[in-house]
Every structure is written in structure tokens, then in C-alpha cells.
Design a protein around this nucleic acid. Structure first.
Lengths: 246, 246
DNA sequence: AATCTGAAAACTGTTGACAGTTTGTCGGAG
DNA sequence: CTCCGACAAACTGTCAACAGTTTTCAGATT
């Protein structure tokens, strides 16, 4: 809860600079801490403490927070501080819908322009995921990379940055936990089908499969939420609370 | 080219604060200046000059720039300054693809939950656009509002913010100029068709129509670019230059 | 015991100053 | 005339200090 007591002194942010500003280094470090879960949703970012911990003054810290605010990883409350954003279930579901649309257009675009070497990279990833089909921890990073590559290979820079931003934001919701071994098998089958559609340059099919692939993830989350709360998630569109009090 | 000599002293940024931080006010003012074209693509943002002009110190200016960087309206080059971003034709086309996908999912979502009062608001906008079918300047803001409302009414907050961010970014490309009277008539017909699909709660059709509506805009831009340069735009995916020298 | 009050502590918002880098200029050498 | 280098000006990056706000907490009051 308090970042001053964080264990890993991963403050590689020493003066190797001239290429990057301290604010940028701090932003990346904070991004890492948030995405990795070192900083949890709702946590407050104490400027002075962070400044001490990272060995810089408060200026760069504030600049970094302003960037993080715009990429929706934190919320800034005037005179009270900046807090790691809290994502409601509804927010997460909303993000899935947007991600699904983006992933779909990535598929349509990629099918038109995919190269043999890109195909082989994707094919390799699918094979490795099949090989690790019973190991969640090995599968997870491969899965993330496969998705990232699909978007990256589309060649649409803006699509890539938007997708990445949404994926990062989704990390605020939960530490994995959504992938079970059963879903992993299904997921891998879908991965292969997507690869197949891309190899055949079938843009419409690749787009549809990729949209559905993300929506399958959304459905798993909804099922899980229903099971936990006993209430259906989607119909009740309650607004998220804006204040992020710890 | 120099913001110190800008005419309108729209520095409403006086101390009415306590609700918003100076950095936020500055960011919004800069956003306005960029989107309105007061600051043009490639322009440099001189921190000291801006600080003087807006009556604040450089701290809030820098924080604002960090936010704008993350929302892709400016680019920051270390030790050289922050520049209003320059959007290449390819960037613009890429953005159209993303926007199209987002607009489509907005349609699918909205069709499921649209209310009578929302329908009447949209219907009113369509009617007013038809009434102003021969007046580009009157039509433009209505058109923007219609699109914004369609996304807003979807209820997906993240979709709305992402869409708005992309729309703003597209403003960097060109000051309107894309809408001719002929396209306006076509556009209004499409608006009506979208409204019709929404009224019938036909999500698939609304989504398709809305996707195509944006892609029509992309096609107009491509045609225009081909006519200007004599070269087809889409196939040649040249990378945009990163340095934004004036 | 619970609550209210007000001062102290902690923290954010903002500023001005200093250091280092980049840009622009002027004079001289080739 | 062109090119080169030193010097000056302009500007960005960073920091420490100050001002104002929020939070904490001890002590008084009911």
C-alpha cells in the first residue's frame, strides 16, 4: 500500500539519460509498477515519497503523473493526489467491446498484407502455446505476445497504440485469474483458426474470428462475475465511482 | 508560427481555480488552440512564451505538455521542445480505419439500448442537417454533434473517450476541406439510414452502416489525395517521419 | 464515551532559479 | 565565397522553496 516500503529497488532510473527525460523514465517505471501489480488499484502515489525513492525531485514525478492520467492509468484529484485507477466490472466489459472491434479490424487489415515471415512467427507462437497447453504461467506471456503481434503486423500504428493502451488499462482490473485450463484449450484452437484465416488471406473471416476471440474472453469474465455475485452483469449499467479513496 | 503573437487573448485561465489545476486549464487551452488550428501542425510550443502569455509559470505548462503528448496531440523531443504533431496521410487513413471500427461497435451497442428520447434527439439533428443541406458551415458542427451523440449514447465510456481522442487527432490533419456539397447530400442520406436502423433496433445493420459511413469519409480522403499527388495512397505504406521540425 | 475544535503535520500546487543543451551569430581562416 | 569555430542567446531539464489545502490528532466540552 505504501510505495516507500516496496521491496524491489528496481530503480534503474539512474543517470544514463540524455536520451530520455526523467519524467519519461519515471512514467515508464510507474507504468511497470502499475501493470505488474506492484501498485494496486486505488493506491495513492505520494509525490515526495516517490521522489525520494527514485532519486529525483517532484517535478518529473508530477509530469509523469500527468501522462499517466491521460493514458487512464491513474486519476488525479485536485489537492488530494493521484490514485491508481479503479476499474469497475462494467468498465472492463466496455473495454472488451472496444478491444474486440480493434482486434477485428487488425485481422481484416492484416489478412491483406501478411508476409510469409510474419506468418511463420505467428505459427511458431501458436505451436509453442500448444506445447505449453497445460502450463498457465508459460502460456500467458505467449498469449499476450501473439495478440500483440497480430495487431503490430497490421501495420496500423494508431491501432497498435490504442490497443496497447486498452490492454494496459485492463491490467488494472485483475491479476490474470481469468484463464483456466479449459479456456486455454479453446483459446488455442481459436488461435489456430485465426492463423488459418490469415494464411488464406481471408480478411472477413480473420476479422470475425478475432472479434469473437476477444468477446469469448469477455464472456468468461461475465460468467465469472455472475458466479461471484449471483447477478447478471451486462444489463445493469451502474456508473463507476470517480473518487478513488484508498 | 509564434504563439506570443497570437491575436485572441483568450486567456480565460485566470484564478477561478480550486476546482481545476493550472496544468489542466493550460492543457485544455492548448487542446483548443490545436484543434481550432490556432496552433498548426509542426509548430513549436515555447514554454517560457506560453507561460508569459497565460500568466503562469513553466511548471504547469510542462505538465500540460506531458498530457498532450500522451493524447498524441504533440510530440516531445528531448532538449529541443514539444511540437504540435504532424499527421501524415497514412496516419490519417489509419485513424479512419480505427474510427470506423469504433463507430461500428457503437452502433451495435446503441441499437440494443437506445431510448425514445435519444432517438428524438438524433432525429432532430438529422432533420436540422437536412435543412442546412446547402450550408457547409452550418452543417459541419451538426455533423460532428451527430457523430458524438451516437457514440455517447452507446453508454460505453471508454469507447467515447477513445473515439473523441481519435477525432481530435484527425483535426491535426486538415482544416475541414473534406466535405463538399455532393458528399454532404450522400452523408445526410447515410445519417438517415443509420437512424432508421437504430429505431428498428437492428444492431447488425446499424453497425455496418456506421462502419461504412466512416469508411466513405476515408475513401473521399483517398480520392482527394490521389487527385492531388497522382499516386495511389493506400498500397504504399511509407512510415511517417518522427521529427517534427518546423 | 462520543463529539467538536483548532492547531500541527503532511501533502499538493506553483513558482523562480540554476545547470546543461541547443541554436544562432559573428569573425576569421582557407 | 564558403566553411569552421568560438561565443552569446535562447531554451529545456531539474530542483528546492514557498503557499495553500487537506488530513491527523490531541484536548476540551457535552
Amino acid at each position: 500500500m505504501n510505495e516507500a516500503s516496496a521491496p524491489s529497488a528496481t530503480v534503474t532510473a539512474l543517470r544514463i539519460r540524455r536520451t530520455e527525460t526523467l519524467a519519461t523514465l519515471v512514467r515508464k517505471e510507474l507504468e511497470r509498477m502499475i501493470v505488474s501489480g506492484e501498485l494496486k488499484a486505488g493506491d495513492r502515489l505520494n509525490e515526495s515519497a516517490l521522489a525520494d525513492r527514485l532519486g529525483v525531485s517532484r517535478g518529473p514525478i508530477r509530469e509523469a503523473c500527468r501522462g499517466l492520467e491521460q493514458s487512464r492509468l491513474v486519476e488525479v484529484v485536485v489537492n488530494r493526489g493521484t490514485f491508481v485507477r479503479q476499474i469497475s466490472l462494467q468498465d472492463a466489459l466496455d473495454i472488451y467491446d472496444v478491444r474486440s472491434a480493434l482486434f477485428g479490424v487488425a485481422g481484416e487489415t492484416l489478412a491483406k498484407r501478411i508476409t510469409p515471415s510474419q506468418l511463420s512467427i505467428l505459427s511458431d507462437l501458436v505451436a509453442r502455446m500448444n506445447g505449453a497447453a497445460d502450463d498457465l504461467d508459460a502460456n500467458y506471456p505467449l498469449n499476450v505476445e501473439y495478440h500483440a503481434k497480430l495487431v503490430e503486423f497490421s501495420g496500423n500504428v494508431r491501432l497498435m497504440t490504442t490497443y496497447r493502451s486498452l490492454a494496459q488499462e485492463l491490467h488494472l482490473f485483475r491479476r490474470r485469474g481469468l484463464v483456466s485450463e479449459g479456456s486455454m484449450a479453446v483459446s488455442n484452437r481459436e488461435h489456430r483458426a485465426i492463423l488459418d484465416a490469415l494464411a488464406k488471406r481471408d480478411g472477413a473471416r480473420a476479422g470475425r474470428l478475432m472479434r469473437e476471440h476477444i468477446l469469448a474472453g469477455k464472456n468468461r469474465l461475465m460468467k465469472l462475475a455472475e458466479a461471484e455475485t449471483g447477478v447478471a452483469a451486462e444489463p445493469s449499467r451502474r456508473r463507476r465511482r470517480l473518487t478513488a479513496g484508498a
